[in-house]
Design a protein around this nucleic acid. Structure first.
Lengths: 255, 255
DNA sequence: TAAAATATTTAGAGTATTCTAAATATTATT
DNA sequence: AATAATATTTAGAATACTCTAAATATTTTA
């Protein structure tokens, strides 16, 4: 069994590989908020354990075993987030920190039961895909709002974990599954002008915020079945809208 | 925030105080499966932290603060056990080990939400009382089966945490809320002869097993309201009987 | 391409917890 | 009350992780 420290290193490196960033000593150190020297030690140790390849002065890359392990931690994390949101009624801004601790302690049996209870969800409350029990992931086909072209879009995924950012998104109505029209991009790194479905007036979002939001562009006219169902799957992902919350009833059978 | 190691020391000492046993170095060491020397160090440390009083060559006793802390851990433990049993469908023999890890990681917010979800349960799956949020506990009015007198009894609580013992109890039908008649006590530490309600033939239980089972004697004729409700509260505590399991539905509202 | 800036590693040490083995205190036995 | 048995503490060391400061390597800049 791995310590939670080790699990956090693996998760961090997986995230960097997903973002196509080199998992260098300093980047890992910054992310985990530890000293560079600590990372050097740990990477060497994890290489010895066969979880990653480590090249001095370069950084780490996960072995297949390391990646599989990291994906299982990610699965635990996101299933727990979904549970906290759907069953315990956590706001989406609170799920991350709690899951961050629990993911290292729950058993495989627990995760299996949770997965059953939740009906094998595909996404967590932020819209992130939950890896399956074999570590398989549906590849994300969304694009970053910062790179989006004018036209209709549906909010799909939010990559920040900052509660303040969630609060901002809620105030602005920028929640997963919400639909809007990108009207204009102010040049020279200026803000984006968008028109949210159901709102009277257009609004502006800064580029920094847009970088943390991923959207699925509406394909006008031709909408394949696959895309349609993908969007539909996210209908259920409106965090923090009480009407969208899940009803859980714990009832005893009569005897 | 306390480490899980510290929490386990406190929990152990609370259990000993509940059983009116001196929390001596060696007894704590045996319970936690660590060396005596480790306990000496830790007790000194916990005294410095104001969680207990430590007298060399004698042992430890909890301060009010230490007891309150230990009770909160016990509350977390038992609420989690109840959740695992009632919501995730764990058998009662599996709940202990999982709760043992999770109790150190969940937040107060989590426990509050869990308590709401479960409807503020009074007991865990073994029949043990769950302390309230202030650390208050209804004192147990059950007696040890090993000391019981002939007559009618209802099984109330099982203090073992051994999966094999649970399996034995299930085979014998000796589950919380089950009712039986103690017919006879074989002298010289011999077994107890009991007649379970609904069974054709009487059966025998060894004294060692009986020491781990607590019962509420049927008070023939005069049964106060209080006692009645206490027994009724345990009607819901038949672990491992599938018909007794809880139905949980996670359903989305229509939009 | 040499100097400056930056990134990484090495060396040595700290914390929390644990251990074993030896020393000491307490309790039980004669 | 002296001895034996048992319980407890002290001393010194191990593990997993962390740190800071110094040394070294790599990259950037001029």
């Amino acid at each position: 069994m791995l310590t939670s420290t080790v699990e956090n290193y693996l998760k961090t490196i997986l995230k960097m590989e997903d973002m196509k960033l080199r998992a260098s000593t300093s980047r890992v150190a910054r992310q985990l908020d530890v000293a560079d020297a600590s990372v050097t030690d740990m990477l060497r140790k994890l290489q010895k354990a066969g979880l990653l390849e480590y090249r001095p002065y370069y950084g780490a890359s996960l072995t297949d075993r390391g990646r599989k392990t990291a994906l299982m931690i990610l699965r635990r994390h996101r299933l727990i987030e979904q549970f906290l949101h759907q069953v315990l009624g956590y706001g989406w801004e609170r799920v991350h920190d709690e899951a961050e601790r629990l993911e290292h302690e729950v058993s495989d049996f627990f995760i299996q039961k949770l997965d059953d209870l939740l009906g094998h969800p595909a996404k967590d409350p932020h819209g992130e895909a939950i890896p399956d029990a074999e570590g398989g992931r549906a590849e994300e086909e969304d694009i970053c709002l910062a790179d989006a072209r004018p036209g209709g879009h549906t909010i799909h995924r939010v990559t920040s974990r900052e509660p303040e950012f969630f609060a901002y998104l809620e105030r602005e109505g920028l929640l997963p599954s919400h639909t809007f029209r990108l009207l204009d991009r102010v040049p020279y790194q200026g803000p984006l002008k968008i028109q949210l479905e159901g709102k009277k007036f257009p609004q502006y979002i800064g580029l920094e915020a847009a970088r943390l939001i991923y959207v699925i562009p509406a394909t006008p006219g031709v909408m394949t079945k696959k895309k349609e169902s993908r969007v539909a799957a996210h209908r259920s992902l409106r965090p923090a809208d009480p009407r969208q919350h899940v009803r859980v009833s714990v009832t005893r059978r009569k005897r």
